[in-house]
Computed example of a mutant assay.
Amino acid sequence: MLKSFEHVGMTVSNMDQAVAFYCDLLGLTLHLRKKTDDGSDLAFLDAGGGMLEIIAPVNGAKRAVDVPDDTAGLRHLTFLYTSVDETFAKLEAAGVDLKERPRFTYNPEVLHKVAFVRDPDGIIIELAERKN
């Protein structure tokens, strides 16, 4: 029997940059950070309803490539906020790479408003809010 969503794992090029982005700017909480046996950096970031596992390989990593519309794969990570507008403004002021400004959703049955930014490695992050 399924209990809950646990985590998504992803590769980053720089652990310090990733932790600063996801924790300081997006509001996740650092749960664990350590070195693996091969010297890579590993961290688990708590997003409130599941974790984000990030691994920074010893020799770094290339910038992420967007998944084309006709290719299977993870398209973006979505985090839920009380206000997309406020969160987007904070990220814009911090110089984050902006992809799409806040707008009303195409799926109002699920979400109210969304915006899209990129993390330091180019991974697309969706900021979402639900109707009150």
Rank of each mutant, 00 (worst) to 15 (best):
14 N>Y: 04
63 R>K: 15
54 I>G: 08
64 A>N: 14
113 K>T: 06
40 S>M: 07
55 I>C: 08
116 F>C: 10
40 S>V: 04
27 G>F: 08
45 L>V: 13
67 V>K: 15
57 P>M: 10
51 M>P: 00
88 F>L: 05
119 D>A: 10
93 A>L: 03
114 V>K: 11
60 G>C: 06
98 L>Q: 09
130 R>A: 05
104 F>G: 14
19 V>K: 09
85 D>W: 02
43 A>Q: 01
81 Y>R: 12
69 D>T: 15
121 D>E: 02
44 F>Q: 01
86 E>L: 12
10 M>K: 09
91 L>G: 06
68 P>L: 13
97 D>P: 01
34 K>N: 10
40 S>D: 06
71 T>Q: 12
75 R>M: 11
100 E>D: 07
44 F>Y: 13
82 T>H: 04
14 N>W: 02
11 T>L: 14
130 R>N: 01
50 G>K: 13
6 E>R: 13
26 L>F: 05
57 P>E: 11
42 L>T: 01
105 T>W: 05
107 N>C: 01
115 A>N: 08
34 K>D: 01
20 A>N: 07
100 E>V: 14
108 P>M: 07
8 V>I: 15
40 S>K: 13
124 I>K: 15
21 F>T: 10
66 D>S: 15
123 I>M: 09
68 P>W: 07
110 V>Q: 08
86 E>D: 12
76 H>K: 14
1 M>K: 11
131 K>I: 08
56 A>I: 09
131 K>M: 06
21 F>R: 14
94 A>F: 01
47 A>Y: 07
52 L>S: 08
41 D>Y: 01
129 E>K: 06
59 N>Y: 00
103 R>P: 03
114 V>C: 10
19 V>W: 00
115 A>G: 09
16 D>C: 03
129 E>Y: 04
17 Q>D: 06
12 V>N: 10
56 A>R: 10
36 T>G: 09
85 D>F: 04
26 L>V: 12
12 V>C: 14
22 Y>I: 14
105 T>L: 07
20 A>L: 02
27 G>I: 06
127 L>K: 05
103 R>H: 14
96 V>F: 03
88 F>S: 08
106 Y>I: 13
97 D>M: 12
70 D>R: 09
5 F>C: 13
47 A>S: 13
35 K>H: 05
101 R>N: 05
92 E>T: 12
89 A>K: 14
94 A>R: 11
24 D>T: 14
70 D>W: 01
95 G>H: 05
91 L>T: 08
32 L>C: 04
8 V>R: 11
33 R>C: 03
124 I>D: 03
54 I>P: 02
125 I>P: 11
111 L>C: 06
1 M>C: 05
102 P>D: 00
58 V>S: 04
36 T>Y: 00
118 R>M: 06
11 T>Q: 12
126 E>N: 13
43 A>H: 03
